[in-house]
Structures are given as C-alpha cells and as structure tokens.
Design a protein around this nucleic acid. Structure first.
Lengths: 175, 175
DNA sequence: TCCTGGCTTAGAGTTCACTCTCAGGTTCAA
DNA sequence: TTGAACCTGAGAGTGAACTCTAAGCCAGGA
C-alpha cells in the first residue's frame, strides 16, 4: 500500500511542496521511489513523519531532526544516542512550557487589569486600587512578576543625557 | 532618571541593535529623545518593554505588537480593544501549552521506548513486548497517540504507482 | 491521441526577526 | 582638544523554513 506525496501531504496537513523540501533536506531517506523516481510512502513511514512533526513542533531545527533521522537509519547501534536526544528534547519542552506558563500569568494579570480599567472607564483606577480589591490569584501573579522585574536603580545611567527640550511627554498613556 | 539604549539593552537582555530595530518598527513610540535625537528610556518604559517581551515570547508577530502599542498610545478609549487582544492571546497561549503537552507525551513515550530498546540491545523488543510490561503512563500515552494518528486506510492511493524495481527496502530500520 | 493533473528537479523568491556595516554625530574624561 | 565609547539612521546581509516557478515527465480517461 503506497501513497504519493500529495496524498501524504493531505493526510498529515502539510503541503507537497513542504514534503519535497524536507526530502531535499534529507529528512525522508526512508521513502521508497518508483522506477521513474516518484516518492512512494508506505504506512510504516507515518511513524517517522509523526516523529518529525513532534520534533518540529517542539522547536527543533531541521538540521537537528536530520541528525536524528540519520541515527535512526543506522539501526540499533545508535539507540543510546537517540535516547539522549529525546531526553534533551524533553528537558527543552519542559522549559518551553514553564516559560509559556510564566507569560500566561502576565497575560492573565493584564486581562484583569483591563477588565478593571474597562468598568472604571480609565486605566487610572490602578493608581488608587486597594490591595483587598485585587483577586488572590492576580495579587500573587503581580508579586511574582515584580520580584522578577525588580530594577534596583543601583546601576543607573552611566552617561548624562541632556534634558529634552520641551518635548511633550510621549509615554503619558499607561499600558 | 534616563537610560540609553545600551543600558536598557543590558537590563532586559536584548542587543541595542534589536532595540533600535524595534524602534524603527514603531514598537517604542513612548521613549523620549534628547535634543540630538538620542533615545532616553525612563523607568516607566520598562512596563511597556516587559509587555512587548511577553507578547513576543508567546509568538505574537511584531506588527501585531505594534498594533497593541498604538492602541495603548491612544489612551483610555481603547481599553476594550486591548482587553480583547489579551483575551485572544490568552487563548492562544493556552493552546500552545496544550500542544506542547501533547508533544511532551510523545517524547516521554519515545524516552521509554529507547530505554527499553537500549537495555534489550535492539528496537525489535517492541514487537514482542507484553502489555503488562508497559508502565501505566506510557500505555496511556500510546493509546491516546494511536487514537489521534489512526489511519483507517479507506482513502487509499488514488494513483497506481509501479512497483519499484529491486530497490532494497530503505526504511527497514524502525524509529 | 491528446488532455488533465499530478509527479520530478533545480533554483529563485518570500517572510520573519534580527544582525551587522557604514559614515558620521555627541558626550565625557584626561 | 583629543580619544574612547557611546549614539544616530540607512540600508545591506543572514538564516530558518518555507513557497513558488519553470520546464519537463508520466499515467489514465474521453
């Protein structure tokens, strides 16, 4: 049971162009070819394709994916190296998730910030808002974020800059 | 208290080049300038910068970040739009995290796969491994992954392809 | 037999987000 | 006053990952 590049493309949600590009980059050495050079994908190739997708979606560059494919092509002798590769990738993905979680916190804070500002009609509420009015989760996020972004001002500007001449304060609007 | 582009760059971990590039792209309309045109960052600009970083780290393209900055510059009238923007971004980040979690599962499965193959000396163990030998978590991941990747074969190849001529089976090695 | 549509390769073009080079201006410290 | 170390804008270059074009081949149906 063989599939052409177009059929596979539809199946896994990539364009035939992209699949040929991967092929050119050496990511698909496992696909068979017909006499006339047409790529013939077989069912067992899907496993490779899903693995490629997985590594791609977790931010691995194509040349690193190729390195993995090449290890796979060499057979059982490279199992240890492949294990190491996936362990490193596991670590990286966990870091990515942690980073996104941290940014999600910032975004949640801003959602609350704008919700509050919206019902007050102005961002200025946040200058006078009482600590008790802030939801627990938001208070926690805000504290954590402040600890991270603390600028102690001990390393102030090393160069004096002339005071701007009658420039209206451009950054008057809060974010 | 003003900072030059180089000082800010050091503080937030970007290059002065990058900061000027952002400036050129219209991401920093809030920074003051000296008489001679030197960028003068103030403490309150950090809030904007951290927000830009947040949106960038969560995959928002520069032109969309600019759209947000522009809304911010317009003041309180755009609070509703900014709220909507952050709500959409929240949704996207949650999706990104879910996607990474799914891929992390695949990676965990492969870690187990190679660990097992390593101690057996060959990937071939996985053709004969008993269901009870598979850890609970792995079994669960594998089932979920199989449900997702199910290829029912009902939409087989639409074009006949000549059987390849004595081509050795290239994809013999499992992944 | 010819048309259609999908396949092939090589290679050029695109988009994004930087990243760097250049030529010149500004500021401070010695 | 002079040198170092910044700064400026314009614009070219980079690398990653596509994305598309061109010219041509091949199989099946009207």
């Amino acid at each position: 049971m063989y599939y052409t590049v177009g059929e596979i493309a539809k199946e896994i949600g990539l364009s035939p162009h992209t699949l040929r590009f991967y092929s050119k980059e050496g990511l698909l050495p496992f696909v068979d070819r017909s006499e006339s050079g047409v790529r013939m994908f077989k069912d067992s190739d899907f496993e490779w394709l899903f693995l490629i997708e997985c590594l791609k979606k977790t931010g691995m560059p194509i040349k690193d994916i190729k390195a993995f494919i090449d290890l796979g092509m060499q057979g059982d002798g490279t199992i240890g190296q492949r294990l190491e590769l996936f362990r490193r990738q596991k670590q990286r993905v966990e870091e990515q998730i942690a980073e996104l979680q941290a940014q999600l916190d910032v975004i949640k804070y801003k959602c609350w910030y704008y919700e509050t500002a919206k019902s007050a009609g102005t961002c200025a509420v946040h200058e006078t808002i009482a600590e008790e009015e802030i939801p627990q989760e938001i208070r926690y996020i805000r504290e954590k974020s402040r600890r991270m972004h603390r600028l102690d001002g001990t390393n102030g500007p090393s160069r004096a800059i002339k005071i701007p001449k009658a420039s209206e304060p451009s950054g008057a609007a809060g974010c």
